[in-house]
C-alpha cells in the first residue's frame, strides 16, 4: 500500500506539489492526470525517493521512503518520462546491469531477463545497441528494466509514448494482468489510455489534488460524458 500524506514540494518559492494526500492499495491501476506543470512528475519522483519532499511523507508498505529509500526501491519499478537508458550498451548488457544493480538473485537473473524480453517483444533486438533502437523499442527496454525485479509497485511516466498501436494494445493487456495483485501508477495525457487501464484517476492541477475518483465517475460529472471534457473543465475551473 502507498500512503501519501500532506506531501509538499517547493522549488525555491514555487509550490510544485501542494499538500497532496491519497492512498493506493494492491490491485489498483491509478492514472495521474493533469496539465503540464501540474506536479505529476514531481509527485512520482517523491514516491520513488528520487527527490526529497519539502513537507509530508510517502509510506510504501509501511516503510517511509525518506527513512529507508533502499528498502522501498526494492519494491518499485520506475520508468521516468525522459530516457534513462545507457545508449552505448546493448539491450542485454543493459538488462544484466539492471539485474546486478537491483541485486536480483543470480539464479533468477536469466529467467527474469527472458521473461521481460518475451513480454515486451524485445528478443529480436537483444544484441543491438540501445542507441540504434527506435523510440518505441527504447521505451520497451525502459519498461523491461523496471519489470526485472517483479516489483510490487510499477510507476510509469508516459509509458506508451512511441509505441505502435499493436504494442499499445499488448502493453495494456499486460498491465491489466500485472495489476491483479500489484500497484500500477501511470502518468499520461492519453485519455483513451486512462479509460482502458485505470481503476482510478488522480487529477492534479497547479500542484493540488483536485479530483480523486474513478474514470466512470469523472465522466458523469459533465453532460458530455467524456474524460477529456471533464479534464478540460476541471483544470480550467480551478484557474
Amino acid at each position: 500500500m502507498i500512503i501519501v500524506k500532506n506531501l509538499c514540494k517547493y522549488y525555491n518559492k514555487k509550490k510544485a506539489v501542494d499538500n497532496v494526500n491519497f492512498s493506493i492499495s494492491r490491485g489498483e491501476v491509478v492514472s495521474l492526470l493533469g496539465p503540464n506543470g501540474a506536479g505529476k512528475t514531481t509527485l512520482m519522483r517523491m514516491i520513488t525517493g528520487f527527490i526529497t519532499p519539502t513537507q509530508g511523507s510517502v509510506t510504501i508498505f509501511g516503510t517511509d521512503v525518506e527513512k529507508d529509500r533502499i528498502e522501498c526501491a526494492k519494491k518499485i519499478g520506475y520508468v521516468p518520462e525522459n530516457g534513462f537508458l545507457y545508449y552505448e550498451m546493448s539491450v542485454l548488457d543493459f538488462l544484466k546491469f539492471c539485474s546486478d544493480i537491483k541485486n536480483i538473485p543470480q539464479a533468477q537473473v536469466w529467467e527474469r531477463i527472458k521473461y521481460v524480453l518475451e513480454v515486451l517483444d524485445l528478443s529480436d533486438v537483444v544484441e543491438q545497441k540501445i542507441e540504434s533502437l527506435s523510440k518505441g523499442y527504447k521505451r520497451r527496454v525502459g519498461i523491461a528494466s523496471a519489470l526485472l525485479n517483479n516489483p510490487d509497485i510499477l510507476i510509469l511516466d508516459e509509458p506508451t509514448e512511441g509505441l505502435d498501436p499493436n504494442q499499445k494494445v499488448k502493453f495494456r493487456e499486460f498491465i491489466r494482468s500485472y495489476a491483479k495483485d500489484k500497484i500500477v501508477i501511470i502518468s499520461t495525457h492519453i485519455m483513451e489510455e486512462v479509460e482502458a487501464l485505470a481503476d482510478r484517476v488522480i487529477l492534479l492541477n497547479s500542484g493540488k489534488l483536485v479530483k480523486d475518483t474513478s474514470p466512470e465517475e469523472l465522466k458523469k460529472l459533465f453532460p458530455e460524458h467524456n474524460i477529456a471534457t471533464a479534464f478540460y473543465k476541471i483544470t480550467n475551473e480551478a484557474k
Partner: peptide, 14 residues
C-alpha cells in the same frame, strides 16, 4: 545531463 541519474538514484543501491 541525460537523466540517467534518475535511474541510478531510484534503484535499491545506496
Amino acid at each position: 545531463k541525460y537523466g540517467t541519474i534518475e535511474f541510478l538514484l531510484t534503484q535499491p543501491i545506496s
